[in-house]
Nucleic acid binder design. Structure first.
Lengths: 203, 203
DNA sequence: AATAAACTGCACTGCATAGTTTACTTGGTG
DNA sequence: CACCAAGTAAACTATGCAGTGCAGTTTATT
Protein backbone atom coordinates (compact mmCIF):
# COMPACT_ATOMS: atom_id res chain seq x y z
CA UNK A 1 0.00 0.00 0.00
CA UNK A 2 2.49 2.54 1.16
CA UNK A 3 5.09 1.33 -1.41
CA UNK A 4 3.69 1.83 -4.88
CA UNK A 5 6.07 2.57 -7.67
CA UNK A 6 9.75 3.10 -7.37
CA UNK A 7 10.52 4.97 -10.56
CA UNK A 8 13.25 3.70 -12.77
CA UNK A 9 15.16 6.75 -11.71
CA UNK A 10 14.60 5.96 -8.05
CA UNK A 11 15.82 2.41 -8.54
CA UNK A 12 19.02 3.65 -10.10
CA UNK A 13 19.49 6.15 -7.35
CA UNK A 14 19.07 3.48 -4.71
CA UNK A 15 21.48 1.22 -6.53
CA UNK A 16 24.05 4.00 -6.44
CA UNK A 17 23.50 4.56 -2.75
CA UNK A 18 23.76 0.88 -1.91
CA UNK A 19 26.86 0.43 -4.01
CA UNK A 20 28.42 3.50 -2.41
CA UNK A 21 27.80 2.23 1.10
CA UNK A 22 29.29 -1.08 0.25
CA UNK A 23 32.26 0.22 -1.72
CA UNK A 24 33.15 3.04 0.66
CA UNK A 25 33.10 0.64 3.55
CA UNK A 26 35.14 -1.94 1.70
CA UNK A 27 37.72 0.25 -0.01
CA UNK A 28 37.41 3.53 1.79
CA UNK A 29 36.15 6.79 0.37
CA UNK A 30 39.49 7.72 -1.14
CA UNK A 31 40.03 4.22 -2.37
CA UNK A 32 36.81 4.07 -4.34
CA UNK A 33 36.85 5.67 -7.76
CA UNK A 34 33.67 6.89 -9.35
CA UNK A 35 34.24 4.38 -12.15
CA UNK A 36 34.42 1.55 -9.67
CA UNK A 37 31.34 2.87 -7.95
CA UNK A 38 29.34 3.12 -11.18
CA UNK A 39 30.40 -0.39 -12.12
CA UNK A 40 29.23 -1.77 -8.80
CA UNK A 41 25.91 0.02 -9.07
CA UNK A 42 25.57 -1.29 -12.63
CA UNK A 43 24.94 2.23 -13.73
CA UNK A 44 26.62 4.62 -16.08
CA UNK A 45 29.05 7.00 -14.46
CA UNK A 46 27.06 9.84 -15.96
CA UNK A 47 24.01 8.65 -14.09
CA UNK A 48 25.90 8.86 -10.85
CA UNK A 49 26.67 12.48 -11.62
CA UNK A 50 23.07 13.09 -12.57
CA UNK A 51 22.04 12.11 -9.07
CA UNK A 52 24.94 13.53 -7.11
CA UNK A 53 26.85 16.60 -8.16
CA UNK A 54 30.16 15.27 -6.89
CA UNK A 55 31.77 12.53 -4.89
CA UNK A 56 31.70 14.79 -1.88
CA UNK A 57 27.97 15.35 -2.27
CA UNK A 58 27.45 11.61 -2.25
CA UNK A 59 29.53 11.19 0.88
CA UNK A 60 27.70 13.96 2.65
CA UNK A 61 24.37 12.48 1.71
CA UNK A 62 25.32 9.11 3.19
CA UNK A 63 26.61 10.72 6.34
CA UNK A 64 23.41 12.68 6.67
CA UNK A 65 21.45 9.43 6.48
CA UNK A 66 23.69 7.99 9.17
CA UNK A 67 23.19 10.81 11.67
CA UNK A 68 19.48 10.74 11.06
CA UNK A 69 19.25 7.03 11.63
CA UNK A 70 21.50 7.16 14.66
CA UNK A 71 19.56 9.91 16.39
CA UNK A 72 16.17 8.24 16.23
CA UNK A 73 17.20 5.43 18.56
CA UNK A 74 14.88 5.31 21.55
CA UNK A 75 15.83 4.33 25.09
CA UNK A 76 13.78 2.89 27.92
CA UNK A 77 12.48 5.33 30.49
CA UNK A 78 13.37 5.31 34.15
CA UNK A 79 10.98 3.25 36.26
CA UNK A 80 10.79 4.28 39.91
CA UNK A 81 9.66 0.97 41.32
CA UNK A 82 12.05 -1.59 39.95
CA UNK A 83 15.62 -2.73 40.45
CA UNK A 84 18.22 -0.18 39.38
CA UNK A 85 20.74 -2.69 38.16
CA UNK A 86 18.25 -4.57 36.01
CA UNK A 87 16.95 -1.34 34.52
CA UNK A 88 20.37 -0.02 33.69
CA UNK A 89 21.41 -3.33 32.19
CA UNK A 90 18.43 -3.36 29.89
CA UNK A 91 19.17 0.17 28.78
CA UNK A 92 22.83 -0.56 28.17
CA UNK A 93 22.07 -3.72 26.26
CA UNK A 94 19.97 -1.64 23.94
CA UNK A 95 22.77 0.86 23.36
CA UNK A 96 25.25 -1.92 22.83
CA UNK A 97 23.01 -3.59 20.32
CA UNK A 98 22.70 -0.37 18.39
CA UNK A 99 26.45 0.07 18.34
CA UNK A 100 27.04 -3.47 17.23
CA UNK A 101 24.79 -3.26 14.23
CA UNK A 102 27.18 -3.78 11.29
CA UNK A 103 25.42 -1.08 9.29
CA UNK A 104 26.08 1.38 12.07
CA UNK A 105 29.75 0.49 12.22
CA UNK A 106 30.19 0.57 8.49
CA UNK A 107 28.69 4.00 8.09
CA UNK A 108 30.62 5.29 11.04
CA UNK A 109 33.82 4.03 9.49
CA UNK A 110 32.97 5.87 6.34
CA UNK A 111 32.15 9.09 8.17
CA UNK A 112 35.28 8.70 10.21
CA UNK A 113 37.41 8.26 7.17
CA UNK A 114 35.89 11.30 5.59
CA UNK A 115 36.10 13.58 8.61
CA UNK A 116 39.49 12.52 9.90
CA UNK A 117 41.19 15.36 8.09
CA UNK A 118 38.35 17.81 8.41
CA UNK A 119 38.15 18.50 12.14
CA UNK A 120 36.21 21.69 11.61
CA UNK A 121 33.48 20.01 9.62
CA UNK A 122 33.40 17.21 12.17
CA UNK A 123 32.95 19.63 15.04
CA UNK A 124 30.02 21.20 13.25
CA UNK A 125 28.34 17.87 12.69
CA UNK A 126 28.92 16.93 16.32
CA UNK A 127 27.00 20.01 17.40
CA UNK A 128 23.81 18.65 15.90
CA UNK A 129 24.52 15.22 17.31
CA UNK A 130 25.20 16.45 20.81
CA UNK A 131 21.57 17.08 21.64
CA UNK A 132 20.78 13.41 21.25
CA UNK A 133 23.39 11.42 23.18
CA UNK A 134 20.87 11.43 25.98
CA UNK A 135 19.35 7.99 26.37
CA UNK A 136 21.52 7.10 29.33
CA UNK A 137 21.65 10.69 30.49
CA UNK A 138 17.90 11.02 30.84
CA UNK A 139 17.77 7.82 32.84
CA UNK A 140 20.51 9.01 35.17
CA UNK A 141 18.86 12.34 35.77
CA UNK A 142 15.59 10.64 36.57
CA UNK A 143 17.26 8.25 38.99
CA UNK A 144 19.06 11.08 40.72
CA UNK A 145 15.86 13.06 40.98
CA UNK A 146 14.27 9.98 42.52
CA UNK A 147 17.04 9.91 45.14
CA UNK A 148 18.36 6.50 44.19
CA UNK A 149 21.67 7.73 42.85
CA UNK A 150 24.08 10.00 44.66
CA UNK A 151 24.25 13.58 43.43
CA UNK A 152 26.51 13.63 40.36
CA UNK A 153 27.29 15.46 37.15
CA UNK A 154 25.08 13.67 34.62
CA UNK A 155 27.34 14.70 31.76
CA UNK A 156 30.38 13.10 33.34
CA UNK A 157 28.55 10.06 34.63
CA UNK A 158 26.92 9.20 31.32
CA UNK A 159 30.25 9.92 29.63
CA UNK A 160 31.87 7.31 31.85
CA UNK A 161 29.31 4.75 30.87
CA UNK A 162 29.69 5.50 27.22
CA UNK A 163 33.46 5.36 27.48
CA UNK A 164 33.29 1.95 29.11
CA UNK A 165 31.01 0.65 26.41
CA UNK A 166 32.64 2.26 23.43
CA UNK A 167 36.10 1.28 24.52
CA UNK A 168 35.00 -2.33 24.55
CA UNK A 169 32.82 -2.61 21.53
CA UNK A 170 32.80 0.50 19.41
CA UNK A 171 36.45 1.39 18.89
CA UNK A 172 37.69 -2.17 18.36
CA UNK A 173 35.06 -2.62 15.68
CA UNK A 174 35.86 0.76 14.23
CA UNK A 175 39.46 -0.34 13.78
CA UNK A 176 38.33 -3.77 12.67
CA UNK A 177 40.36 -5.29 15.47
CA UNK A 178 37.42 -7.46 16.34
CA UNK A 179 34.03 -8.34 14.98
CA UNK A 180 30.78 -7.63 16.81
CA UNK A 181 30.63 -9.31 20.23
CA UNK A 182 28.29 -12.25 20.66
CA UNK A 183 24.97 -11.69 22.47
CA UNK A 184 26.51 -13.34 25.53
CA UNK A 185 29.43 -10.94 25.49
CA UNK A 186 27.06 -8.05 24.98
CA UNK A 187 25.14 -8.99 28.08
CA UNK A 188 28.35 -9.45 30.04
CA UNK A 189 29.52 -6.01 29.01
CA UNK A 190 26.23 -4.44 30.05
CA UNK A 191 26.35 -6.27 33.37
CA UNK A 192 29.83 -5.27 34.37
CA UNK A 193 29.34 -1.71 33.17
CA UNK A 194 26.18 -1.33 35.21
CA UNK A 195 27.98 -3.02 38.08
CA UNK A 196 30.92 -0.68 38.28
CA UNK A 197 28.73 2.33 37.70
CA UNK A 198 26.25 1.53 40.45
CA UNK A 199 29.00 0.57 42.90
CA UNK A 200 30.13 4.14 42.73
CA UNK A 201 26.94 6.09 42.29
CA UNK A 202 24.12 4.14 43.90
CA UNK A 203 22.71 6.00 46.92
CA UNK B 1 80.71 14.28 24.40
CA UNK B 2 78.23 11.66 23.39
CA UNK B 3 77.06 13.71 20.38
CA UNK B 4 79.96 14.33 18.07
CA UNK B 5 79.35 14.63 14.40
CA UNK B 6 76.05 14.31 12.68
CA UNK B 7 77.06 13.64 9.10
CA UNK B 8 75.63 15.79 6.38
CA UNK B 9 73.70 12.73 5.32
CA UNK B 10 72.35 12.26 8.81
CA UNK B 11 71.24 15.86 8.95
CA UNK B 12 69.32 15.49 5.72
CA UNK B 13 67.77 12.28 6.90
CA UNK B 14 66.61 13.90 10.10
CA UNK B 15 65.21 16.84 8.17
CA UNK B 16 63.20 14.40 6.09
CA UNK B 17 61.90 12.63 9.16
CA UNK B 18 60.95 15.84 10.90
CA UNK B 19 59.25 17.21 7.82
CA UNK B 20 57.39 13.94 7.36
CA UNK B 21 56.10 13.94 10.92
CA UNK B 22 54.91 17.48 10.56
CA UNK B 23 53.44 17.12 7.09
CA UNK B 24 51.76 13.78 7.68
CA UNK B 25 50.15 15.10 10.81
CA UNK B 26 49.06 18.29 9.15
CA UNK B 27 47.87 17.00 5.79
CA UNK B 28 47.54 13.29 6.35
CA UNK B 29 49.65 10.59 4.79
CA UNK B 30 47.56 10.45 1.64
CA UNK B 31 47.38 14.19 1.49
CA UNK B 32 51.11 14.72 1.51
CA UNK B 33 52.90 14.35 -1.81
CA UNK B 34 56.52 13.46 -1.95
CA UNK B 35 57.18 16.77 -3.66
CA UNK B 36 55.55 18.65 -0.82
CA UNK B 37 57.52 16.58 1.64
CA UNK B 38 60.84 17.23 -0.05
CA UNK B 39 60.07 20.93 -0.21
CA UNK B 40 59.32 21.05 3.52
CA UNK B 41 62.49 19.19 4.35
CA UNK B 42 64.42 21.55 2.06
CA UNK B 43 65.83 18.54 0.34
CA UNK B 44 65.72 17.17 -3.18
CA UNK B 45 63.04 14.62 -3.81
CA UNK B 46 65.79 12.35 -5.04
CA UNK B 47 67.38 12.54 -1.63
CA UNK B 48 64.19 11.43 0.02
CA UNK B 49 64.25 8.36 -2.16
CA UNK B 50 67.91 7.79 -1.38
CA UNK B 51 67.00 7.46 2.29
CA UNK B 52 63.65 5.73 2.01
CA UNK B 53 62.80 3.32 -0.76
CA UNK B 54 59.18 4.43 -0.93
CA UNK B 55 56.56 6.50 0.78
CA UNK B 56 55.37 3.38 2.52
CA UNK B 57 58.84 2.69 3.88
CA UNK B 58 58.93 6.16 5.34
CA UNK B 59 55.58 5.72 7.01
CA UNK B 60 56.55 2.36 8.45
CA UNK B 61 59.76 3.80 9.80
CA UNK B 62 57.90 6.57 11.60
CA UNK B 63 55.38 4.14 13.02
CA UNK B 64 58.19 1.92 14.23
CA UNK B 65 59.67 4.88 16.06
CA UNK B 66 56.29 5.55 17.62
CA UNK B 67 55.78 2.05 19.00
CA UNK B 68 59.31 2.03 20.33
CA UNK B 69 58.86 5.32 22.10
CA UNK B 70 55.44 4.38 23.41
CA UNK B 71 56.56 1.07 24.86
CA UNK B 72 59.41 2.42 26.92
CA UNK B 73 57.09 4.35 29.25
CA UNK B 74 57.59 3.26 32.81
CA UNK B 75 54.96 3.06 35.53
CA UNK B 76 55.16 3.28 39.29
CA UNK B 77 55.27 0.03 41.18
CA UNK B 78 52.70 -1.11 43.69
CA UNK B 79 53.54 -0.11 47.26
CA UNK B 80 51.99 -2.34 49.92
CA UNK B 81 51.98 0.19 52.72
CA UNK B 82 50.34 3.27 51.32
CA UNK B 83 46.92 4.50 50.32
CA UNK B 84 45.43 2.72 47.31
CA UNK B 85 43.61 5.73 45.95
CA UNK B 86 46.66 7.97 46.08
CA UNK B 87 48.82 5.33 44.44
CA UNK B 88 46.39 4.67 41.65
CA UNK B 89 45.91 8.38 41.03
CA UNK B 90 49.64 8.89 40.66
CA UNK B 91 49.85 6.02 38.21
CA UNK B 92 46.91 7.24 36.17
CA UNK B 93 48.22 10.77 36.07
CA UNK B 94 51.37 9.41 34.52
CA UNK B 95 49.46 7.51 31.87
CA UNK B 96 47.32 10.51 31.15
CA UNK B 97 50.34 12.72 30.79
CA UNK B 98 51.85 10.31 28.30
CA UNK B 99 48.67 10.24 26.28
CA UNK B 100 48.38 13.99 26.26
CA UNK B 101 51.83 14.58 24.87
CA UNK B 102 51.15 16.24 21.51
CA UNK B 103 53.91 14.22 19.87
CA UNK B 104 52.19 11.06 20.97
CA UNK B 105 48.86 12.16 19.59
CA UNK B 106 50.32 13.34 16.32
CA UNK B 107 52.11 10.11 15.62
CA UNK B 108 49.10 8.12 16.61
CA UNK B 109 46.99 10.12 14.21
CA UNK B 110 49.44 9.32 11.48
CA UNK B 111 49.52 5.62 12.28
CA UNK B 112 45.78 5.62 12.52
CA UNK B 113 45.40 7.27 9.17
CA UNK B 114 47.76 4.80 7.62
CA UNK B 115 46.30 1.68 9.18
CA UNK B 116 42.64 2.54 8.89
CA UNK B 117 42.33 0.65 5.65
CA UNK B 118 44.84 -2.05 6.50
CA UNK B 119 43.26 -3.93 9.38
CA UNK B 120 45.48 -6.94 8.85
CA UNK B 121 48.67 -4.94 9.12
CA UNK B 122 47.24 -3.18 12.16
CA UNK B 123 46.44 -6.45 13.89
CA UNK B 124 50.00 -7.59 13.34
CA UNK B 125 51.44 -4.42 14.82
CA UNK B 126 49.08 -4.71 17.77
CA UNK B 127 50.50 -8.13 18.57
CA UNK B 128 53.88 -6.62 19.39
CA UNK B 129 52.25 -3.81 21.31
CA UNK B 130 50.06 -6.09 23.40
CA UNK B 131 52.88 -7.25 25.64
CA UNK B 132 53.36 -3.73 26.95
CA UNK B 133 49.95 -2.31 27.89
CA UNK B 134 50.77 -3.48 31.39
CA UNK B 135 51.60 -0.48 33.59
CA UNK B 136 48.19 -0.46 35.22
CA UNK B 137 47.81 -4.19 34.88
CA UNK B 138 50.92 -4.97 36.90
CA UNK B 139 49.78 -2.65 39.63
CA UNK B 140 46.35 -4.28 39.75
CA UNK B 141 47.79 -7.78 39.95
CA UNK B 142 50.08 -6.75 42.76
CA UNK B 143 47.23 -5.14 44.69
CA UNK B 144 45.06 -8.22 44.23
CA UNK B 145 47.89 -10.47 45.38
CA UNK B 146 48.24 -8.23 48.40
CA UNK B 147 44.55 -8.79 49.18
CA UNK B 148 43.56 -5.15 48.90
CA UNK B 149 41.45 -5.55 45.77
CA UNK B 150 38.69 -8.07 45.29
CA UNK B 151 39.46 -10.99 43.02
CA UNK B 152 39.03 -9.81 39.44
CA UNK B 153 40.09 -10.38 35.87
CA UNK B 154 43.10 -8.06 35.50
CA UNK B 155 42.63 -7.88 31.74
CA UNK B 156 39.07 -6.62 32.06
CA UNK B 157 39.75 -4.37 35.00
CA UNK B 158 42.70 -2.61 33.43
CA UNK B 159 40.72 -2.42 30.21
CA UNK B 160 37.99 -0.57 32.06
CA UNK B 161 40.47 1.93 33.39
CA UNK B 162 41.99 2.49 30.01
CA UNK B 163 38.59 2.88 28.42
CA UNK B 164 37.62 5.51 30.96
CA UNK B 165 40.81 7.42 30.34
CA UNK B 166 41.00 7.06 26.60
CA UNK B 167 37.39 7.92 26.11
CA UNK B 168 37.98 11.20 27.88
CA UNK B 169 41.33 12.28 26.61
CA UNK B 170 42.68 10.05 23.87
CA UNK B 171 39.84 9.74 21.36
CA UNK B 172 38.72 13.35 21.53
CA UNK B 173 42.28 14.42 20.81
CA UNK B 174 42.60 11.82 18.11
CA UNK B 175 39.60 13.31 16.34
CA UNK B 176 40.81 16.82 17.13
CA UNK B 177 37.56 17.49 18.90
CA UNK B 178 39.48 18.96 21.77
CA UNK B 179 42.99 19.95 22.64
CA UNK B 180 44.97 18.38 25.47
CA UNK B 181 43.27 18.80 28.85
CA UNK B 182 44.82 21.20 31.35
CA UNK B 183 46.84 19.77 34.23
CA UNK B 184 43.86 20.44 36.48
CA UNK B 185 41.57 18.47 34.23
CA UNK B 186 44.14 15.71 34.02
CA UNK B 187 44.19 15.39 37.78
CA UNK B 188 40.41 15.46 37.94
CA UNK B 189 40.21 12.68 35.38
CA UNK B 190 42.69 10.56 37.30
CA UNK B 191 40.78 11.17 40.53
CA UNK B 192 37.38 10.22 39.28
CA UNK B 193 38.71 7.24 37.38
CA UNK B 194 40.49 5.91 40.45
CA UNK B 195 37.36 6.71 42.44
CA UNK B 196 34.93 4.71 40.37
CA UNK B 197 37.38 1.87 39.97
CA UNK B 198 38.09 1.49 43.67
CA UNK B 199 34.43 1.82 44.61
CA UNK B 200 33.85 -1.37 42.75
CA UNK B 201 37.00 -3.34 43.29
CA UNK B 202 38.46 -2.32 46.66
CA UNK B 203 38.39 -5.21 49.12
C1' DA C 1 94.49 18.37 -5.36
C1' DA C 2 92.12 13.79 -6.11
C1' DT C 3 88.41 10.90 -5.15
C1' DA C 4 84.20 9.00 -3.70
C1' DA C 5 79.92 9.62 -1.71
C1' DA C 6 76.04 12.19 -1.11
C1' DC C 7 72.95 15.90 -2.69
C1' DT C 8 70.46 18.58 -6.41
C1' DG C 9 67.24 19.94 -9.96
C1' DC C 10 64.43 18.72 -13.41
C1' DA C 11 62.50 16.41 -16.99
C1' DC C 12 60.00 12.36 -17.72
C1' DT C 13 57.19 7.85 -17.42
C1' DG C 14 53.26 5.71 -16.08
C1' DC C 15 49.22 5.44 -13.87
C1' DA C 16 44.96 6.77 -11.56
C1' DT C 17 41.14 9.67 -10.92
C1' DA C 18 37.29 13.51 -11.00
C1' DG C 19 34.39 15.21 -13.92
C1' DT C 20 32.52 16.40 -18.97
C1' DT C 21 31.02 15.82 -23.66
C1' DT C 22 28.77 13.54 -27.27
C1' DA C 23 26.05 10.77 -29.87
C1' DC C 24 22.95 7.18 -29.10
C1' DT C 25 19.28 4.05 -26.80
C1' DT C 26 15.35 2.94 -23.85
C1' DG C 27 11.12 2.71 -21.35
C1' DG C 28 7.05 4.48 -19.70
C1' DT C 29 3.02 7.80 -20.33
C1' DG C 30 -0.59 10.31 -22.93
C1' DC D 1 2.39 5.21 -31.68
C1' DA D 2 5.10 9.21 -30.61
C1' DC D 3 7.46 11.58 -27.48
C1' DC D 4 10.86 12.78 -23.96
C1' DA D 5 13.04 12.40 -19.67
C1' DA D 6 16.32 9.47 -18.18
C1' DG D 7 20.00 6.33 -18.87
C1' DT D 8 24.22 4.61 -21.53
C1' DA D 9 28.96 3.87 -23.35
C1' DA D 10 33.13 5.58 -24.44
C1' DA D 11 36.18 8.85 -25.47
C1' DC D 12 38.15 13.00 -23.65
C1' DT D 13 40.14 16.76 -20.53
C1' DA D 14 42.63 18.02 -16.85
C1' DT D 15 45.08 17.12 -12.84
C1' DG D 16 47.99 15.07 -9.58
C1' DC D 17 51.22 11.90 -7.77
C1' DA D 18 54.80 7.95 -7.03
C1' DG D 19 58.86 6.90 -8.54
C1' DT D 20 63.16 7.06 -12.05
C1' DG D 21 67.12 8.67 -14.84
C1' DC D 22 70.67 11.60 -15.40
C1' DA D 23 73.97 15.22 -15.71
C1' DG D 24 76.09 18.20 -12.82
C1' DT D 25 77.48 20.05 -8.07
C1' DT D 26 78.78 19.98 -3.21
C1' DT D 27 81.16 17.99 0.80
C1' DA D 28 84.36 15.37 3.36
C1' DT D 29 88.34 12.62 3.50
C1' DT D 30 92.85 11.30 2.30
Amino acid sequence: MSEKKPTRSELKRQAIIDAAKQAFQELGVQGTSMDELAARAQVSKRTVYNHFASKEALVMFLIGELWQQATQSSGCDYHPGSDLHAQLCALLELEIKTICNPQYIELNRMAFDYFFHQPEALRQEMEKYKAHETGVQRWIKAAVADGRLKPLDPEIASGQIHNLIKGSCFWPQMLQLSGPPSPTEQVALAERTAGIFLSHYQA
